[in-house]
Design a protein around this nucleic acid. Structure first.
Lengths: 190, 190
DNA sequence: GATTTTACTTACTAGTTAGTAAGTTGTCAA
DNA sequence: TTGACAACTTACTAACTAGTAAGTAAAATC
């Protein structure tokens, strides 16, 4: 038995990374195993099926987001800084080997992933949307943001844009991603 | 020899459909073959490798877009209607079995597709962006559109948004897609 | 000190993948 | 009518896929 500190967590992190790098159909148990220097079956020991692994990745992602947004360091920020924090998550993904949003990655392959994963993606996407909607509404009330229409729709627009912009950056470079983020701010901030 | 009218074109169309439905890693030669009632090798006869097939799909997509945008029926439209036509392409995709933008689909899997395909995606994305940028610039000059900043950045934002919104609709439904499109118009049209 | 549990490895399976080589058959041009 | 060619099929391969069953060794628990 090789001594790996908390190997379940290590597998989870690597799986998340691979999902954001190559998509659900783009990586295999063999990839994970060889990367970690263990055998195929070791991964199956922790996550019996690929669906289990996928679900765990999304649940971990959800937990982390909930933890952050409930933390005073984000919760008590003014609206504009909350939004900057949120945009920062996506900028970090871009900086981290050109990763793409987990949600977008799984929605592109939505019709070829297990049903249990589809549900999980749905829930995560809703949670992101809800937080963003509340932040936009709060910011408009405080005259920090300026936009017409329903905050829910503006939230859906912004999330879609971030998701698409990370993908665009894959083909056209990081500058394009930053341009889009700047344009979003230009369209939103007073 | 079974009599199929222009089977190369039939394969191409089905491949495009599968790409927008399941992604590049989500379909196989066997899928295409069984759907068309032919054998695996028949597909390889027309498109020796999967990279060849992918390139042909994208090139076909590019040709079609160029044809449309150069046609008087689009070319001579006022800016607002040009934009409506463009948005209509994405609405049609959504209506057509929840398809997703070809570019987004391939950018999610960018790091697990052949290099030749990556180039082709890059070129297509640039062409879409260039047309949209020109249309936005033209529309702002004609006081049909209203936005701050560089038309190139606004074009990148809009394209990213459409791409992301089609993906979002997979998990959260068509209404969300329409909401995003309406919000974009609200943010743009005078 | 014995027993159970954890975290694996070894060795395998059945199915799928892209891709190939060689043969077949209908169509068309000379 | 013959020969070339287009459009396939048959039959195959090597590599990879998720997943399993049985065995092993160290560590934790009793």
């Amino acid at each position: 038995m090789v001594k790996i500190e908390n190997s379940k967590r290590t597998i989870l992190n690597l799986a998340e990374s691979l999902l954001q790098d190559k998509g659900f159909n783009g990586f295999s148990y063999a990839h994970i195993a060889s990367e970690l220097g263990v055998k195929n079956a070791a991964i199956h020991y922790h996550f019996p099926t690929k669906e289990d692994l996928g679900r765990a990745v999304i649940q971990h992602y959800r937990d982390r987001f909930k933890l952050w947004t409930n933390n005073a360091r984000v919760k008590d920020l003014p609206s504009r800084e909350k939004l900057d924090w949120f945009f920062g998550i996506y900028s970090s993904m871009r900086a981290d080997k050109g990763k793409v949003c987990l949600v977008g990655s799984m929605e592109v392959e939505f019709n070829s992933i297990p049903g249990g994963l589809q549900e999980e993606v749905q829930i995560l996407h809703k949670e992101l949307l809800d937080w963003l909607e509340a932040t936009l509404a709060e910011g408009r009330d405080a005259d920090a943001f300026q936009f017409n229409g329903d905050p829910a729709n503006k939230a859906a627009l912004i999330l879609s844009t971030l998701q698409g912009a990370l993908q665009m950056a894959r083909a056209l470079g990081t500058k394009k991603f930053r341009d889009v983020v700047e344009q979003m701010k230009l369209d939103l901030i007073v």
